[in-house]
Design a binder for these strands. Sequence first.
RNA 1: CGGGAUGUGGCUCAGUCUGGUAGAGCACAGCGUUCGGGACGCUGGGGCCGGAGGUUCGAAUCCUCUCAUCCCGACCA
Length: 503
Amino acid sequence: MAKKNKTAITPTREQDYPGWYQEVVKASDMAENSPVRGCMVIKPWGYALWENIMHKMDGMFKETGVKNAYFPLFIPLSYLEKEAEHVEGFAKECAVVTHHKLEKDGEGGLKPAGKLSEPLIVRPTSETIIGESMARWTASYRDLPLVLNQWANVVRWEMRTRMFLRTSEFLWQEGHTAHATEQEAKERTMLMLDVYTKFVEEYLAIPVIRGRKTASERFPGADDTTCIEAMMQDKRALQVGTSHFLGQNFARGSDIKFQNEEGKEEYAWTTSWGTSTRMIGGMIMVHSDDDGLVLPPRVAPAHVVIFPIFKKGEDKRTVMESALGLKDALGEKQFHDRKIQVEIDDRDIGGARGWDWVKKGVPVRIELGPRDIAQNSVFMARRDEASNKKQSMNREEFIKKITDILDNIQDNLFNRAVNFRKENTFEIDDQKEFYKLYEKSRGCNNGAFVMAHWCGSQKCEEKIKKDLSVTIRCIPFDSPTEEGHCICCDNSSSRRVVFAKAY
RNA sequence: CGGGAUGUGGCUCAGUCUGGUAGAGCACAGCGUUCGGGACGCUGGGGCCGGAGGUUCGAAUCCUCUCAUCCCGACCA
């Protein structure tokens, strides 16, 4: 039979970007929707990816002196009230636990019973409960800094959810630190943003813009929120990670005090920083194509998949032996932090087998049949190239070059993303042009990143958001000082900021 | 919380208007032929039609209530 579709994924990105995204997640076997509204089941292929992310990031954190700990899932309601802006930001999306048991309702079902004297909320983030511990642990400047992190799940009762990008429950890491000086806390905020930048660019192959959030986009309760922002293939922005300088706001709320060297009591300076499974959503939207997921080799759950090919029964043993031998030889090789990971798929399902792994995004696919074995070669396809482009390679040469090939794929994905962003980032100074660009955007085309001048007033920011659903993603650290006029009100401005539609 | 829609096998849906033995495609299992770009044939397993009540000799189909989900809006680090 002729192939039914030109692409493995329908709809394509061009036809229906959100639909494409959902299909890629499903077709790659990473995750699926669960019976619980807004929550997802992360399947082994998706979770292995998360494990790789966790493992690498955790190591990078620890190199900077971070210690892991674990704090409760439940937070007393009164804790949330300790920081005024914090309440404001999270109250609308909290799951609340009000009872501690169930009893028979007399109609064959169960009903909640045992009302709690104080309701508990399921953590939407842990500043307040960790602050409570920090307050008890901190008596002297000698107890500082506290540099903690936890890998956990959090719940934010979202109205509208999309797998990995926004779910009611999600997995993340949240770092929380307390310092004796403002300077040190600010340095930690930037240090962690550096770690995030390095991880996201080098491992997920996603180029990011580093910058500062405007007051209205700041974390509730923070003095300063820094972030890394990336462009998706529909030209919308996704915040991939954030790091907050919390000043003394939470220290006051949670009473984190210490005696300084002069014996005087002071409030500590705190930070918090986080990345979540949302990064996976970003990785999908940056690299994947109309044939499905494309995994950057440095985080891929498997680097290579081997398809043994045999027609007759007697071929099977030789081919399988050869495939296992190849797997072992590759498995000896070191690719950065890990050994090369190889899957062998010997399912007898014809051509569908190859497409399965294209959709799963494995960087390198190898077809290995009697012909290749006779010539001591392998037939290789790369996921970053057209799916029908395959090349025969000498087997030993392939083994020797596999790490180079994987590095090359990794670089290629990153460079491609950099170029895409470059092609879709514009400096605009004319308001009409700015409006025209975003007004005509729809579907896969959500405009662009626009570097434009902004006077700094919240009014202008709000007007643009209201008119165009376009927000200031960040004030980039590296944007040079230059004279210009606000894209909205024409008042003078000294630097450009990044405008985009956001996820 | 407003507006609109939909609940039938694992998935996508037909059947409902006009009540009469629960269907198709895909997926799954077995056998055979295939196999280096999404194979084909035959056979087979699987559903008290979201739930409760009502009308009727008879309800997936008509009526009432209820639950759930999806879309649009509002909301959203």
